[in-house]
Structures are given as C-alpha cells and as structure tokens.
Simulated assay, not measured.
Amino acid sequence: MAAKNEPYRPQIDAVLHRINLIVEQDWSFESPDVFNRQVSVNELARLSAMSVRNLHIVFKAYTGEHLHQYINRLRLERAVGMLQSGYYTNERIAGYIGFANVTAFYNAFKKYFGVTPARAKRGTLAFGATPAVLMHAFNLAYSIREIHEKPLLFLSHIGDYKFTNTSAFETTTWDALYEYANCHNLLPEEEEYWGICYDDTGITQPDKCRFYACMTVNTPVESRLKSRIKSMILPRQLYAVFCHKGSYTLLDTFYDAILKNLPQEYLLGEGFILERYLNSPAVAPEEELLTEVWLPIVTR
C-alpha cells in the first residue's frame, strides 16, 4: 500500500479477512443473492467504517485489484483447486462458490483463465515449477489429529510465500503477536505459532498469495478495527499431520509429496491448510527446522 494509505491498512485487513471467510464458505444451500449481499460494497464499506468511494480507492491501492475483481479471482481460483481434485462436478462447484448456475460459472471461468473448466481440470495453471526432489528424501509418516477450537491472534500478509520464511518476516509478525499477547494478558501456558496458507502456488500468482501468521492465545478476543492484529477461532477439523525437517524452501516440494500420500480412507477437506512451527530460524540451524503441515481431511 502507498504510504499515504497506511493508516487504513487495519481496516483493509478486516475487509480482506471477511472476504476470505466468505470465499471459503460453501454457498450451495444459499441463493446467489445471499452471497452477493455478503460481498456487496455497501456491506464491506460498513464493516471498514469507510465510505464506498474511499473503500474502492484504498482497496485498489493496497491489493492492486478492484474490490470485485479481487473477490471474483479468489473464488475462481478456488474453483480450479476443486476441479483438479476430481471430486466435484461443475454444477457442484458453481453452487459452492456462489454462482447462480453452471452457465454463469463456465462463462466467468473461461473469461478469466482463457480456458474451459474441463481444460483446467486436465491440466495445470502453474506460475512456476517446483524443483524436483526425490520423494523418498522426505519422511512421509503422518498422524491423524483433531482440532476442536483454537483461539488465535493473526497478522495477514499478501505476497510471495518465500518472504514468510525469512527472519525479517518473523520479527514483524510472530514477534509482534507475542508482544501484543503479553501486553494484553493473553499468553497461554505454552504458546503455539501457526501459519494459514490460503493459496496454491500452482494456481495463484506468487505476489498474490494470502498468508496468516498466527499465535494461540488463552481466550477468544474481539478484533479491533483499527489494529492490524486481528483475532479468529480456528474451527473444529480433522487433520492428517506430517512433519517436515529442514529448510522452509523445500516446503512446496514437501506439499507435493504428502498430497500424494494422504491416508487412503480420507479425502482432502475444504478447511484451512495449516503449518505449525515447532522451532525458529532465530534459534535453530536451517537443517534442523521442524514444521508440521496439517492437511484437512474428511472420511471417504
């Protein structure tokens, strides 16, 4: 965001979080009018305590996209992931992401990506290749765990996931979250540091990837509109948990390996994909870094 718009960043973060929650939701059982009302500029302007005009201006300055271009891109990129999973029909996807019918979805998809949903299902929309690493170089052991509910503080980031793996990013996010929690008596008995990765780097352009740096707290709290540090509840979900040891730069390839090694009795669910950081680059050498990857799963 341009410097003159920085005072509005917490408000834009609130809007982006609301959009993320809406896009992640299953809209199959609601009319398209309900989805459209939820993402209307009047509703988002009310949330941000800005005028409609100012929201349009500041949102574009921060994200580089017009508000509804941004929303449309997110739900169409979500559609690509659903197509490539092979579990969903076009009709199911159209309803899930809030389109009125499959024709409207088909036309919007082809206009944005330049290919039909069927073509995207067969191929890939990758923006960059992941270096080839032998799968047997990774430990693919997993455990099945469930999160019931977990209150979090978070700071949101839009940009290349590579930056989230740096010590500079750690200082401005997780260190800031710890300081905030300490000052507001929110520290749990043992804090946990998590990342929420919203986007697939094979679908979303690297500079548009969404990431939340999160820290557990001892009790749920309400987000403050004018604070960049927001709060949320991680919902109940079953996960397959894998542990990666080594450089964060290999995480993309690790994801490729573990997604091919999901337990046979489960399918990849639609919940958050999580990373839990068991140590830090500030105290551990790169080859000793431990990162748990939590894949949401549902029973076949």
Score class of each variant (00 low, 15 high):
A14C: 10
E190N: 13
W27R: 04
I19A: 00
K230V: 05
S231Y: 09
F272K: 12
Q205N: 14
K260F: 10
D26C: 08
Q264A: 13
T116E: 08
T216A: 11
P7I: 11
H157I: 02
A137Y: 14
E288P: 03
S143L: 09
F254K: 04
Y248D: 10
R122Y: 07
F211W: 14
I71P: 00
L289Y: 06
P263M: 06
G114K: 11
D26Y: 07
N185D: 15
R46T: 09
A108K: 01
A168F: 08
S40R: 07
C243K: 15
S227A: 13
R276D: 07
N279V: 13
R300P: 02
I147V: 15
T201R: 15
I144T: 05
W27S: 04
R37A: 12
P131G: 06
R236F: 08
G271H: 11
S143V: 13
L140C: 09
F29Y: 11
F138H: 02
H56R: 15
N5W: 03
D200F: 01
P296L: 13
L16H: 00
S40Y: 07
K226T: 12
T291Q: 06
E192I: 08
N42F: 11
L16R: 00
V58Y: 06
N182V: 06
D33I: 02
F105G: 02
R145P: 03
T253F: 01
S223D: 08
F99Y: 15
L140P: 01
F211P: 01
